[in-house]
């Protein structure tokens, strides 16, 4: 078993060996993944960070290339490739990484995403608590689930026991000399929120048009909080930040709630917020299942926690199938 002090010493050691460590940091009321300056910044007590590992793998905005029309030049923009250890992600966030992997490194490879993934080690700290928005067990995961982790630390008597999950984790452990632990993990916390996903996919297959879409999206005000904080949502837009002749082309998160989502010069295929909310549910619980065989939801509950107007995805799923 490793105590918190042991862990902080480990992190310091990894930083010393040249790894950039991204971990949950508390700033006033908010806990978010940040590049760690010092190990002591790590917060061990939160349920879940506000942001997700998308901030590492698929950041909210990035420059693709710079251009200059007069000089007829294009200069691709790549950040320096550096090994990153994500420390203290929760099992739901780690599981979400496997979903994004299947999508962004599946049939077509997103080279930027792939490069960041290659350089990223996921060291998860499993959950010793859950809040009322958590529903990972309903999505087939769990508070101690190792899916997506390279190494997982399971809570044990006030500290953590570390286990290797993947080959990448094994290589990392031997490279940095991380000793793995024997010893038993504490029991997993119970989750209050539970739904069954039985029949949801079948309902979605049949009900692209249904009056229920308007009902379930009633409270939605078409902001992007649920999307932007979702660990599996991955739509993006391409925009130029341009002057008269020079500019940069950027990739920026986009969101199906927004009125302008997929709006084209001649046509808006999703007029009305219920059609856009339908896109969100369909994308997660039908299209992704059709495409990669997995649901694009890990039950992290952020969309429930942060929706300013109480749209509750588990309630929506149950109301649709009802």
């Amino acid at each position: 078993m490793k105590t918190i002090e042991d862990i902080l010493r480990l992190i310091e050691d990894w930083q010393g060996k040249g790894y950039t460590v991204v971990a949950p940091v508390r700033s006033e009321g908010l806990v978010s993944f940040e590049v760690l300056r010092a190990p002591s910044q790590i917060d061990f007590d939160h349920v879940l960070t506000v942001n997700t590992l998308k901030d590492v793998t698929l950041p909210r905005c990035e420059t693709l290339f710079k251009y200059d029309v007069e000089k007829a030049s294009i200069e691709p923009s790549w950040e320096a490739s550096q090994p990153i250890v994500v420390f203290g992600s929760r099992p739901c966030d780690a599981a979400a990484v496997t979903i994004l992997d299947s999508i962004l490194m599946g049939e077509v490879t997103d080279s930027r995403y792939a490069r960041r993934r290659e350089n990223m080690i996921v060291v998860t700290l499993a959950c010793s608590q859950a809040d009322e928005a958590c529903f990972c067990t309903s999505m087939g995961y769990g508070p101690h689930d190792p899916t997506g982790s390279d190494i997982i630390g399971l809570p044990s008597k006030g500290g953590y026991v570390f286990r290797v999950v993947s080959q990448k984790g094994k290589d990392f452990a031997s490279k940095v000399g991380l000793e793995l632990d024997e010893g038993r993990a504490d029991p997993e916390p119970e989750l209050k929120r539970r739904i069954t996903t039985d029949g949801i996919k079948a309902w979605l297959d049949e009900n692209f048009e249904s009056p229920k879409w308007e009902k379930v999206s009633e409270n939605c005000v078409s902001c992007g909080a649920c999307y932007y904080l979702c660990p599996t949502c991955h739509c993006f837009d391409i925009a130029d930040e341009a002057g008269a002749s020079r500019g940069v082309r950027m990739r920026i998160w986009d969101c199906c709630s927004f009125a302008g989502f997929t709006k084209m010069a001649a046509h808006q295929p999703r007029v009305g917020k219920h059609r856009r909310y339908r896109q969100r549910i369909m994308h997660k619980f039908k299209y992704t299942v059709d495409n990669i065989g997995k649901t694009a939801c890990v039950g992290d509950g952020r969309c429930i926690r942060y929706c300013p107007y109480g749209v509750d995805i588990t309630e929506v799923l149950e109301a649709l199938r009802e």
Binding site: S32, R60, C223, Y228, L229, F258
Partner: peptide
Amino acid sequence: SRCIKCYACRQA
């Protein structure tokens, strides 16, 4: 710098 431009403020 924390703003992610989700526009919840505007929509609310």
